[in-house]
Each structure stands twice: as C-alpha cells, then as structure tokens.
Write a protein that binds this DNA or RNA. Structure first.
Length: 403
DNA sequence: TCTGGGGTCCTAGGACCC
DNA sequence: TCTGGGGTCCTAGGACCC
C-alpha cells in the first residue's frame, strides 16, 4: 500500500488556518527568491504548479494566497500519520514527509481486505488529522505508487496482479517512478512511448543503451518490482548532509560569500554532530547568476564534524573557483562518513575544540539555533536552520552509520 | 519579483597500485 | 617494431525523487 497525502503542505496550512479553506493557496519558501512548493487543488485549477515562481503563480491566479511554509508543522503531522499507519502494520517505510509504503500482507487476517484497510487508514487520517490522503494498493511498491496517483485527491485504487498488464499497456513511460523527462525523451526517440512498447522492447537493447537502468526498465514496464518495504528504523544510514541557499541577491563580494559559507558550514556541522556523523569529503556547490551550477569536492585527511574545518575547505574551493562571475546559490555538504563521533581526542587542541562544540550544541539545544552565532557572521543572517524535508528525512532524524 | 532545497544512485575519466 | 589488465579511489556531472 502506498499512502500519499493530497497537496500536503497546503492541506496542513488550511487545517491550521481555516480562513484559508476554499481559497487557492500556494505554500512557498520563506526566502526572498522562492518558488511554489505545494499548490492547493483550488490553486491548481488556475494552473499553479510546484516549482513555479511567485510571480508566475500570481499571474495565473490573482487571488492566490501565499503562505510561507513551516517545516516543523509538516514533520509533526507526518509523524502522526506514521503513527496511524503503524497501527495497521509494523512494516511502514517513510518515502518522504508526505508519502509512505505499508506492507499489509500480514495485516489482512486482522483487518480484512486491502480495501478495508485502505478505507480505515484514510478515515483515520481524515478524522484525526483533518486532511485527505490517496491510497494505492498493488502487488508491489512500483505499482502501488502508480495506483495512488491514479485517483487523486482522496483516491483509492487497487491494482490487482491480473490488472497490471492492462493498466500498464497504454501508460506513458514517464508515469513510472524512475523514468523522468530525460529517460522518457530518449525512449521516445527510440519510438517507445508507452509501457506496453517498453515491455515489448528487447531487454538486451535496453541494457546496451542504458546500462543498469536499462536492465530494470523492461522489468518496470511489465510491472515487476521485488524491492522490499524497508521498515522504520531499518533504513540504510544517511550518506550525505548538506545545506544550500539561494542568496537574496547575486553577489561577487568574497566577504559576503565567506559569511554565507560560514553559516552553511555551521548548519552542516551541527546536523552531522546531531546525527553522530563524521565526514571526510566536503562538497561546495556554486550557482552563477546565469544558473550555471557546478560542484567541487575535497577529501580531507581525516573525518570531521567541525564547522571551521568544513568552512575552510569550502572557502578554499570557492576561492579557486572565484566569486567574480557572481554567485546566486551556495551549498556546503559533507559525505564519506566513516563512523560515529570519535571518542574524546587525546591531544589538548582538538579536545578544547570538542568541548567548545559540545558547549555550543548545548546552548543551541536549550535556547534555539540562533541563540549563539559565530562572530565572523557579523550582525547579519541570524536565520534559524529550517527543518529538513527530503526523501531521506526520517521522523527520528538520521541514524548512525554502522560499520 | 526569473527559475527552492535536500537527498540517492549511476557514469566516466584519470590517478594509482599490484 | 608498439603500447597488459584488473581493481580502487577520487572528482565532476547528471538523472531522478520528494
């Protein structure tokens, strides 16, 4: 079973503020340069879509109400939804803040038919949370995800094993999760537009043309997917942690860039420490005013979760790349995690540093993220770290990497 | 008032090693 | 009088997902 909240952020905002209900709503980021993250169904009727600029959304729908998103709210609701799902099966996989897979194979004897379960889930989400969800039921995750899309919003679709071929036959290949615009276009150029055609294409040809993805392609087109539902708490460890931000305005001023890198490095280091991770690879992302985007990576001599080390590394890469052509977006990330936080360092230098970091974390845990800041930031940018929403988001935060 | 932010996985070339 | 071959690590970019 795949459970997908309808217009999630917008629905949560409408629930929190009934004055919004019935009006076209677009949830946007809080930064100056932002896009629509979620449009309510009322707004969608005007053509407002995810990813659209404020300006364009407003053009399409003059009465559109913009709401700045609040990730904490969505995480809170998400956790409550997961709680409901876990009442029906212990095998619940978080796919994103607003989507989950539930393996209900073992729940049937307890709760009745798959449809019974889906209806009960939808009803509880509606009653207890006040928003609607679309549910897809199928023999596997690939098809369940497809099914939940087929009758949105407030949908319930069951694709039985015998229906799989019929459903897929005329379906455009791009509707399958995993086939995006680029793959769809390349397949189209080969005369393959629908899953039926993809299923009929020689597997060898697909493999030759697309490699590993190609091997999976013909399986997908036949609705075959044996990937398991990975229960909460058994996911693979996080592989990278990063923060990026589009600046309020483009800049070529290296001091401004430095300050942003400090802020981003600090956020990254702090999150790494919270997760108990030490990373050995630092990645800098730069987007130029013309939208040209590139990354630079450095492997450190040893793993770190220290903001200063990350920052110095990012700054070195930035200086090499040059602030000159201008900067629109900056990103800092770490990866290459080797294990949890190391034991207390032996030498006085690192020891003092670690004591400092622990003190800082303690202050921020008690008094908030902006309660204490690095001096080099100056008086500006005391923004709080937003909650993180991504496919790898976990209700309890990331787990430590095991080795 | 032009185009967000956080991730994962795969590919490909070059360095380096045996 | 001709350029081995396999494996790993590193970096950069791109496709895809929400």
């Amino acid at each position: 079973m795949h459970v997908d909240m309808d217009a999630f952020f917008a629905s949560v905002e409408e629930k929190a503020n009934p004055a919004l209900r019935g009006r076209p709503v677009a949830v946007v980021g809080s930064a100056k340069r932002t896009v629509v993250t979620t449009a309510s169904y009322e707004a969608r009727r005007f053509g407002v879509k995810t990813g659209m600029t404020r300006f364009e959304a407003q053009q399409r729908c003059p009465l559109l109400v913009f709401v700045a998103g609040d990730n904490r709210k969505y995480i809170d609701v998400s956790v409550r939804v997961l709680g409901i799902l876990e009442d029906f099966s212990p095998v619940v996989e978080v796919y994103s803040v607003d989507e989950a897979f539930v393996d209900i194979t073992g729940s049937l004897s307890l709760f009745g038919s798959p449809e019974d379960i889906a209806r009960a889930v939808k009803e509880r989400i509606r009653r207890e949370i006040g928003i609607t969800a679309s549910v897809g039921i199928a023999p596997n995750k690939l098809m369940a995800k497809l099914a939940s899309e087929m009758d949105k919003p407030d949908g319930l679709v069951h694709i039985k094993a015998g229906d799989v071929e019929g459903v897929l036959h005329g379906l455009p290949v791009g509707k399958l999760t995993g086939i995006g615009p680029s793959l769809a276009a390349k397949l189209g150029a080969m005369g393959i537009e629908r899953c039926g055609e993809l299923a009929a294409s020689p597997a060898g040809l697909l493999k030759e043309r697309f490699g590993i993805i190609g091997e999976r392609l013909s399986m997908m087109a036949r609705g075959v997917d044996d990937s398991p539902v990975v229960p909460l708490g058994e996911e693979a460890g996080v592989k990278s942690v990063g923060h990026s931000a589009t600046l309020a305005r483009d800049t070529a001023d290296i001091d401004t860039v430095r300050r942003h890198l400090i802020r981003l490095s600090d956020m990254v280091a702090r999150r790494a420490r919270r997760y108990g991770l030490m990373g050995q690879r630092v990645t800098l992302t730069v987007r130029r005013p013309d939208f040209y985007t590139f990354t630079r990576q450095t492997t450190l001599s040893e793993p770190t979760d220290d903001a200063r080390t990350i920052w110095l590394s990012a700054l070195t890469m930035m200086e090499r790349a040059g602030a000159d052509p201008g900067v629109r977006l900056l990103g800092v990330g770490i990866s290459g995690f080797s294990g949890g936080s190391a034991e207390m360092p032996l030498f006085p230098g690192p020891r003092r540093r670690q004591a400092l970091l622990e003190a800082l974390d303690g202050i921020r845990d008690r008094f908030g993220d902006s309660s204490i800041l690095w001096g080099a930031l100056g008086e500006r940018s005391n923004e709080m770290e937003p909650g993180v929403i991504s496919p790898s988001w976990r209700p309890s935060g990331a787990r430590r990497v095991e080795f």
